[in-house]
Amino acid sequence: MPRVPAGRRLAVLSDEELQRLQEEQSGLRAFSQPADGDVRAELQAFRQTADGRDNLVHRAALGGISEAETAGLSGLSRTTVRTILGKGPAARDSERQGGVPCQSAVGPVDEAPAV
């Protein structure tokens, strides 16, 4: 039997506590390893709710809803909202590399981008 270092105590579990702990761990393993088909179904359901996200963010901006409020209501980060609107880091990087700023996916743009 291994020696316990001085000042340390061993936790002694009753048979019932040990069984409960083993059942909890077994349940966690089952939860953390869902069936492959279950994960695919969840991903497809998520995709259906996520489709149209960018369009909705553009509509919110056109409706006068602030970026911060759009982020709060949608659960998206403000950086994601700004990126969708063409104001985030991806848009700035594109402009620095000579790209055209992102345009709204809601409808046609009235003015040509400044060059």
Rank of each mutant, 00 (worst) to 15 (best):
L73P: 02
T83A: 07
A45I: 04
S77I: 04
D15K: 00
G99P: 08
V100M: 10
G72W: 12
E17W: 06
H58Y: 10
P5W: 08
G52P: 08
V106L: 15
V57F: 04
V106S: 11
Q25F: 03
L13Q: 11
V57L: 02
D54S: 12
L21A: 05
L85D: 14
P113Y: 02
R96Y: 11
R40T: 00
G64P: 08
V57M: 00
V109Q: 15
A112K: 10
E23T: 04
E69S: 09
M1D: 07
G75Y: 02
E23N: 07
I65E: 01
S26Y: 03
Q33A: 11
L21I: 02
Q44M: 03
E111C: 11
A91P: 03
R82D: 08
S14P: 06
R20L: 06
C102F: 14
A91E: 04
S26P: 03
A112G: 12
H58V: 03
D51I: 09
A35F: 01
A11F: 07
R82T: 12
R9Q: 13
R3E: 14
E16R: 02
P34I: 00
G86A: 11
R92A: 15
L28E: 13
P108A: 03
P89K: 15
E69D: 13
Q48P: 06
G75M: 03
I65D: 08
